[in-house]
Design a protein around this nucleic acid. Structure first.
Lengths: 121, 121
DNA sequence: CCCTAATCTGCAACAATTCGCAGGTTTGCA
DNA sequence: TGCAAACCTGCGAATTGTTGCAGATTAGGG
């Protein structure tokens, strides 16, 4: 009965997929709704190719869903609660000597989930 | 204000640390209380050296705390709620064609958190 | 003091991930 | 049909992660 082993591998694969700064920001970016590749790339100041590669990975494990409209591909979170679950992880990051001195965990949490600083509109 | 970038990197580091089947099982193993290196190694059928290496990583990011008693080093979760948070991630793993057909998410969840099958006592 | 148990650390080989770039596909429009 | 916009995929080089093994450390017991 190696189910336990199997589950630990599945979980590890999921966490590995999430364990990249760009992908985390992308998920956070999709928190409020769908967005197309170019939109994500601009919001996060990343090359569109990289965003596309990340999206392919997220898509492969069904974390995002795609909708095509003309030449644009819109992506949305398959599980909207994923973003909230990720924010919950902040309680486990080691605060000492990380995050510039004086920053409080709650302010960081608020900032992370805050609306992006409107790169364009 | 690159705080957002910094936070995404911190989160990614944390998830990267968790994204290993052995380490996930170790954390689950510590869910109910402290255990020494040999105890963990036996319960999970892993070489003690590997367990020690994993523990060093978890320790470095303060996810586990150490207590020494004689020659044994007992480890415990720094944040007991971490184990529950990890179990929550099961809702995001893609079920199709993973987990042997017919297995239900709830049964997997129960199995994962169930007491280990007593390898020895 | 010496031996052993329990654990830790350093290192090298191997494996996996990341990322840019080149080239391909699909769609809209003239 | 031809062209350009928006995306996707394949590939190779550089980086990063994993793991066993050999050799320290630390502590208990003669």
């Amino acid at each position: 009965m190696p189910s336990r082993l199997i589950v630990s591998r599945e979980l590890a694969d999921l966490l590995k997929l999430l364990a990249h700064p760009d992908r985390l920001r992308m998920i956070e970016e999709l928190r409020l709704g769908e967005k197309d590749v170019t939109g994500i790339a601009e919001a996060l100041a990343l090359p569109a190719t990289r965003v596309s590669q990340h999206l392919a990975q997220l898509r492969a494990q069904r974390l995002v869903e795609e909708r095509r409209d003309g030449r644009s591909h819109f992506y949305r979170l398959a599980h909207p609660q994923l973003a909230a679950w990720i924010v919950d992880a902040l309680q486990f990051v080691d605060i000492r000597n990380r995050l510039d001195e004086g920053e409080h965990i709650d302010s960081v949490r608020a900032l992370w989930s805050a609306q992006a600083p409107n790169t364009s509109h």
